[in-house]
Design a binder for these strands. Structure first.
Lengths: 352, 352
DNA sequence: CTGAAAGCGCTTACAG
DNA sequence: CTGAAAGCGCTTACAG
């Protein structure tokens, strides 16, 4: 039996209203009452219960994050921005993890309609306009991250654009057989990136060859794994005529792809997508998504929406930025670098 | 204004009790009423509010995870086990993220005493017995992960033992100057691992040399980063006489350490700690912690505790397991492997 | 500065 | 199968 406001009131010889005032920092309480109540509360282990407070106030001071697959680099970095920003507010964070095995819409809808939080930040969930529209009826503040819908505030990155630019970079450098490592076709970002890749080739008067667009066979995390990237690169290198450059759907896959190149002793320049922490460390060139900023922006939007439910809907679309590191060195430059490396390492490491 | 049970009752021409029954799957409702209510609810966007339900039932059907630094490999893997297990129950998950910058005890206490959840799984939080004891007064189900206290159910891994065994392995293999890459000394697991390392040396009649126990200078995530591992290994390799083997505080640091070895052209066998997903991929030998199992066990314990608050407190301590991969090859074996590798790769990759 | 009372949106015996 | 009513633990005008 946990202790309630009544227990404290009784013990302190005051009404529950006074106890409540103490915990709500109302200044209309005598110093004497306040001290006594606080002391009693401490001793008896009392604190207002979140649920009762929420009901009485009709406010929970909670923001809910709704996200599938938490163990994902994109989410981890977005989360850091979110935490940073929410720390400045008086809201608490709550994370609701959607299971990919079940009906995703149902889970999101359930979570939203229960009304546990004052606002919802929905990350990397992709619905049809019709579905998003259906959520509208619960009349709850929602901000979308990594997705776009006319119905809600959103912050996203132009994936098509990013893929386009990465591919265009290779075209400008004179590469002829530019491959793309994709992922499961059900992944929305992957679809967009494939579109951007194709468009860049077409705008350059070339054709996208289906044999050069491959994914690995691993399906975990929609293919966003090292393993999947490794498998994909193996396929590419097994082609009668292998590609001379590769745009890769994600950094995590690119890391696997690089390992495949090493195992096969073939090197082609590669550009990843995301710019996760590993990438800089491993010298991977990539299309950088401003993940932290996206997280911060999302909190800013949801807070605005909570304070001003009628405000105009706003969309922020970031343009990804090409970050060049050593993985885009030309084969010649790479050979030279490798030679230097091997000289230094004669008879030594090269682990995996 | 969101729609409540009263709106539905009125519209359906029944009492709120009947509406409530429909949503609680009580079978004492005529098919006619049920259909009408469900249909109305769907149309009007009604669903029982979590807070009101929680208050009335005195149950939230929520388990709260309390964790510092979410973006951490250990946590990610534990989380997968947790999600797996909780999916089989009718509880929802809720994650409360502790900020390392503020008073941790205060945050944990706050979160627990607000009573939002029915049970709390506290991960990688390290307090004194006195502090844990203080939490006892809120009389709430709590399970500890990666920590031990007599007061609460817990699931942990014997870090001392793990470090001992890793070190002992190197001793048995005949290595003479076995180094250890540690991390920030405020990290509890790190303290334990250093103890185990020292003890193994001492039990073999040797001394732990302080110059051989080093951490990098990066303080992010308590030193559990590639960068920190890289820095640490650089220090070790800069020693007048460098070590001939290395036990490393975490896999993530070990990956950085390996890169440092490659950059320096010096190879020594290394054993990491954790067995994160990358490790298998990169051929890193490691002390494996059964992270998924730990997550599953934690949920099992908290559920038991919720159902049976008076039950006997139980502690599960896993013994970590040494997983040998290519990073513990002897220098000779490694040299041979490298030679083969280089032959295959003549004039080719070796990225970063 | 303080208390009595209404209300937040539900659930759940109890009685029929 | 259904409704009236009490109760969950708070907050917050209102009146003093």
């Amino acid at each position: 039996m946990s202790v309630t406001i009544y227990d404290i009131a009784k013990e302190a010889g005051v009404s529950i209203a006074t106890v409540s005032r103490v915990f709500n920092n109302s200044n209309n309480v005598s110093e004497k009452s306040r001290t006594k109540i606080l002391q009693l509360a401490k001793k008896m282990g009392y604190h207002p219960q979140a649920m009762a407070q929420g009901l009485a106030r009709k406010k929970s001071k909670l923001i809910s994050l709704i996200v599938p697959v938490m163990s994902n680099y994109f989410f981890m970095e977005v989360l850091e921005g979110i935490q940073e920003k929410i720390g400045d507010s008086d809201f608490d964070l709550n994370i609701y993890n959607v299971k990919l095995s079940d009906d995703i819409f149902e889970q999101v809808e359930y979570s939203v309609k229960r009304g546990m939080a004052e606002g919802y930040v929905i990350i990397s969930v992709h619905f049809t306009e019709k579905q998003w529209n259906e959520l509208k009826k619960y009349d709850v503040p929602i901000t979308l991250v990594d997705e776009y819908s006319a119905e809600f505030d959103s912050v996203s990155v132009d994936s098509i654009d990013g893929a386009y630019n990465a591919t265009q970079y290779f075209i400008e450098q004179g590469y002829q057989r530019i491959a793309m490592i994709s992922a499961l076709s059900r992944s929305k970002p992957t679809q967009d990136r494939v579109s951007g890749y194709k468009r860049a080739l077409e705008d350059a008067g070339r054709f996208a060859l289906s044999e050069l667009i491959v994914a690995g066979d691993s399906t975990a995390r929609d293919g966003f794994t090292e393993k999947n990237g490794y498998e994909a690169m193996i396929k590419l290198l097994s082609l009668p005529e292998h590609p001379d450059a590769c745009f890769c759907n994600s950094d995590i896959q690119a890391i696997g792809a690089i390992k495949a190149m090493q195992d096969h002793g073939i090197y082609i320049p590669i550009i990843g997508y995301d710019d996760i922490q590993f990438s800089d460390f491993f010298g991977l060139s990539t299309m950088r998504q401003p993940m932290r900023e996206m997280g911060e922006m999302a909190i800013e939007k949801i807070l605005n929406r909570i304070n001003n439910p009628g405000g105009k809907i706003s969309h922020t679309v970031y343009a990804p930025e090409l970050v060049l590191r050593s993985s885009t060195l030309s084969p010649a430059a790479m050979a030279e670098k490798s030679a230097r490396f091997k000289e230094k390492n004669s008879g030594k490491p090269v682990l995996y």
